[in-house]
Design a protein around this nucleic acid. Structure first.
Lengths: 83, 83, 83, 83
DNA sequence: ACACAAAGTTCGCGTC
DNA sequence: GACGCGAACTTTGTGT
């Protein structure tokens, strides 16, 4: 499979990966810091995270999806109470 | 740590785990089959899965969460278009 | 999409799915319980899971997998001395 | 909760978070690209990831981990003959 | 130590 | 039939 492993090439790839993962770890630390600071100023971190998540959603996609869903919901008499 | 590993006891636990995982795998196969059958009869599998997911959500929990969020959304002038 | 949604048929499918998912959830609970019991008796759950995973692989796959890993390790000079 | 929400401050925090998450997403894309390139050159991505993970562990942790795993394997009679 | 949340891995699906 | 994409599950880390 593959071929006689070329140590040099492999090392290069691994080095690139490790470099990127280091950068990523730094950013994650920064994120943690921002949330910590916000929390120290009285904000609710959990809710902030949720807000951020919501803002990621593209409204149009969402609407399209919901329309498709409605079809099926009605078909099912989607009464949530009867779960 | 732990203790001199008791092979018998460990084997029992592993056997129980493997039995349960086998059952689980069977069920997953069944699920796949149901969806395949539904698809063959003209239903949209992706949407079906979404309906199933929605039905799992407890409506009350949802509402509570949204109220909290609204506070922050308004604070942000949560205009999704300006993302 | 598809066509005039047949509510009855769809309901049947959803019911079957939900039944299967309930069974699956039960099994997952059982699994959790087994691991909890093992842990209470001094076993290391993480290692147990690793063992279970290894047992899933047949011997040939296992050998192949380990050989490839060793190859890469050697290429990277990662083998300092073996065990 | 917390108190009269200060919209300006909150917006700043959210902006900083979103900036950092964007950077993070870029890095993840880069990582994907590196692995894709490696794959295109005949390397096994899964094994590469495994190697990278191993390189993160220091030697002591590694030894401890492997010893425990061996203990369990032996208890289950999983060691047929060593490599 | 536990529960919740994020990350990584795996699996199924649609595509080419 | 393989590849890449997206969702599901698992596992790891963190905060309480």
């Amino acid at each position: 499979m593959t071929n006689p492993v070329s140590a040099d090439i492999l090392s290069q790839y691994v080095a690139r990966v490790e470099r990127l993962e280091e950068e990523k770890a730094n950013i994650q630390t920064d994120l943690k810091d921002v949330y910590a600071e916000a929390k120290a100023n009285g904000f609710d971190v959990k809710t902030m995270k949720e807000v951020v998540k919501l803002r990621k959603l593209n409204k149009d996609e969402l609407r399209e999806k919901e329309e498709l869903l409605d079809l099926y919901k009605h078909a099912l008499g989607m009464i949530l109470e009867e779960a």
